[in-house]
């Protein structure tokens, strides 16, 4: 099973051990942006469409 921490988009938090952020590039019809949401490093990423192995 792939986990979030194995993904290129995963960034661990320096000040909060065991927590991380998923950072993704999005380009919509009007603008481009980076978005993030908190994820668990051990979270199951097997069904994630954005998963990219580090």
């Amino acid at each position: 099973m792939s986990t979030c921490s194995e993904c290129k988009s995963f960034f661990s938090r320096e000040d909060e051990q065991g927590k991380g952020d998923c950072v993704l590039r999005v380009v919509d019809p009007r603008q481009a942006y980076y978005k993030t949401r908190p994820v668990n490093p051990d979270g199951d990423a097997s069904g994630c469409e954005s998963f990219q192995k580090k």
Binding site: V26, Q31, A32, Y33, Y34, K35, T36, R37, P38
Partner: peptide
């Protein structure tokens, strides 16, 4: 927990 974003 809500997703946040930074526009270019």
């Amino acid at each position: 927990n809500i997703p946040i974003f930074i526009t270019d």
